Amino acid sequence: MQIFVKTATGKTITLEVEPSDTIENVKAKIQDKEGIPPDQQRLAFAGKQLEDGRTLSDYNIQKESTLHLALR
Rank of each mutant, 00 (worst) to 15 (best):
M1N: 04
M1L: 06
I3C: 02
I3H: 00
I3D: 00
I3W: 00
F4R: 06
V5D: 00
V5C: 03
V5F: 03
K6L: 13
T9Q: 12
T9A: 15
T9P: 06
G10L: 09
K11N: 15
K11I: 15
K11M: 12
T12Y: 06
T12G: 04
T12H: 07
I13W: 07
I13R: 02
I13H: 04
I13E: 01
T14N: 08
T14P: 12
T14W: 06
L15M: 05
L15C: 03
E16T: 12
E16R: 12
E16H: 14
E16P: 05
V17C: 04
E18W: 15
E18V: 13
P19C: 04
P19H: 06
S20M: 14
D21N: 09
T22R: 13
I23A: 03
I23H: 02
I23P: 03
E24G: 13
N25I: 13
N25V: 11
V26C: 03
A28G: 14
K29P: 00
K29G: 05
K29E: 04
K29N: 07
I30E: 00
I30P: 00
Q31S: 12
Q31F: 14
D32V: 08
K33W: 07
E34H: 06
E34P: 01
G35V: 03
G35A: 06
G35H: 06
G35W: 04
P37G: 05
P38F: 15
P38D: 04
P38S: 12
P38T: 15
D39S: 15
Q40S: 12
Q40Y: 10
Q41G: 03
L43D: 00
A44V: 15
A44Y: 15
F45W: 07
F45A: 04
F45T: 03
A46D: 11
A46G: 11
G47W: 05
G47V: 02
K48R: 14
K48H: 15
K48D: 08
K48M: 14
Q49A: 11
Q49I: 09
Q49N: 12
L50V: 03
L50I: 04
L50A: 02
E51G: 04
D52T: 07
D52V: 06
G53F: 12
G53N: 13
G53M: 09
R54S: 12
R54A: 12
T55P: 06
L56Y: 01
S57L: 14
S57T: 13
D58P: 01
D58N: 07
Y59S: 03
Y59Q: 03
Y59I: 02
N60P: 03
N60H: 11
N60C: 04
N60T: 05
N60M: 09
I61Q: 01
I61K: 00
Q62S: 13
K63R: 11
K63M: 11
E64P: 03
E64S: 12
S65F: 08
S65T: 08
T66F: 06
T66G: 02
T66I: 07
T66Y: 08
T66W: 07
T66A: 04
L67C: 02
L67E: 01
H68I: 10
H68D: 10
H68W: 09
L69C: 03
L69Y: 02
L69W: 02
L69P: 01
A70H: 15
A70P: 02
A70Q: 11
A70G: 10
A70V: 14
L71H: 08
L71I: 11
R72V: 15
R72D: 11
R72A: 14
